[in-house]
Design a protein around this nucleic acid. Structure first.
Lengths: 246, 246
DNA sequence: CGTAAACTTGAGAAATTTCAACCTGCGTGG
DNA sequence: CCACGCAGGTTGAAATTTCTCAAGTTTACG
């Protein structure tokens, strides 16, 4: 009870874990390595020999572009795997970098194979990669079909739910360490335009964003504005676990 | 040799199949069902009880949007699975529809589980879902960071390679049945703008698109223009298998 | 306090959308 | 066999969104 391990908190959403499953996961995730902000974890073209997992902080998947910009294709929050798949694909087709200081755990391929012997854990890991894929699809919809301010709002809603799942957001707020340039790389917009969009959202009373903290003033209202429906996150109890303000 | 089964041709790119593996796949893929164009195969919210596979024609994953438009997030070419994952996620977070008349094969969950007993087949199926995910990431880059005409060019390059893999494209051309409205739903642009972009590509001598057939006049040149690098498709021999003109 | 990174602002240029009209090919029913 | 009808494609012009460039301003932190 009162679980604080983000990996376990997340995987509970995908499968009914046993106490022993949880024990294994807890053992695995002890003693990660501290990494600073803006540090590359894995580079495109590499073929890593272990699986990595974010236990604290915020990281991202990205591709570096010929013109010097980069495209961020996913955020990795605590409990997210960097490269659960790479053993099969051979080489990374994208890079992973920290956005804030992070705790990264390395798990040997051997250990992963052991985990996969346990049916519920195998199912939970499968679930987690399928949810990652589902998020990619929703991002595609987001970028293709919504106005910039809606895209931004949608991203906020998604982060709220995902951080709630691992106990890092209250019911309507969470620490927000992303720079406007990073948001620009994510949504494929200009930093200047990101800036104006944020001001718009503030003026319209949707959010308060200051001191590296984001507060959503009326969550259902913002979700409505962003056309956000949480089904694509495949949570069992949507946002059921929220941080208690103490 | 001289394989013509698109599923087998594709999976060979992901793992070294044995003759028996191929036999199994051939048996599976016999006797699909013919379906017309613009027919929904699976709808968002459903929980299908079998896995479906496209054996001929072109289909797509899409989400219907509140404003009546739809967002196409993936094309399914012969050899592609519709829902290899759904047993774990519970319900579809998107729909699948044909774009042209298609042959669709249904495979029972039981049969899939049997396939997964064979290590190389399991690996090949894993590989195929990971490649699907990789394609989603590249589409995200495409929509976010490239000019409209480059996006279009990139899409053409990807389709060329993917259709070559299953023997449905020559070294520089393939049948092209997509409407401009469908392209618009894919790239998140307006049909009007798609029209102008296509004219641009024609004027610039990149492509000939008529009579439902696309010819790329200089493939390396178009790839360069689109910043297309095929690594994300994780093919063993990039575009090695091409249709012989007879 | 000084410096660099992050954020903000303004104005003009470019890309894309919107709306509305008009072609064109092609299959079907008369 | 022809004419009608319609889906798909094309065009023009104005409105809107987003970008670019260039110059401040603020904030974090050594």
């Amino acid at each position: 009870m009162n679980e604080r391990n983000p990996l376990i908190m997340k995987l509970e959403q995908g499968a009914a874990l046993s106490d022993e499953d949880r024990q294994r996961l807890r053992a695995l995730t002890a003693g990660g390595k501290e990494v600073g902000a803006d540090v590359d974890i894995i580079l495109e073209g590499e073929a890593p020999n272990a699986v990595r997992l974010v236990m604290s902080g915020l990281a991202c998947r990205y591709k570096a572009l010929p013109n010097g910009r980069r495209s961020i294709m996913a955020y990795l929050v605590p409990g997210d795997f960097c490269d659960l798949h790479i053993a099969i694909l051979g080489e990374m087709d994208h890079s992973i970098s920290t956005l804030t200081p992070c705790t990264i755990v390395e798990i040997s391929t051997q250990t992963v194979l052991e985990l996969l012997q346990r049916p519920m854990l195998a199912r939970a890991l499968w679930w987690s990669t399928l949810v990652d894929e589902s998020i990619l699809r929703e991002w595609l919809v987001n970028m293709g079909q919504r106005a910039a301010s809606q895209q931004m709002a949608h991203l906020f809603c998604e982060l709220l739910i995902r951080l709630q799942t691992v106990g890092l957001a209250t019911e309507n707020s969470f620490p927000f360490l992303l720079t406007q340039a990073e948001l620009a790389d994510t949504l494929g917009l200009t930093p200047v335009h990101i800036n104006r969009v944020l001001q718009q959202l503030r003026e319209d009373g949707f959010i308060v964003l200051k001191n590296h903290y984001l507060l959503i003033k009326d969550v259902p209202n913002l979700m409505d504005y962003a056309q956000f429906t949480p089904n694509y996150l495949h949570r069992r109890n949507n946002g059921g676990v929220t941080l208690k303000i103490t």
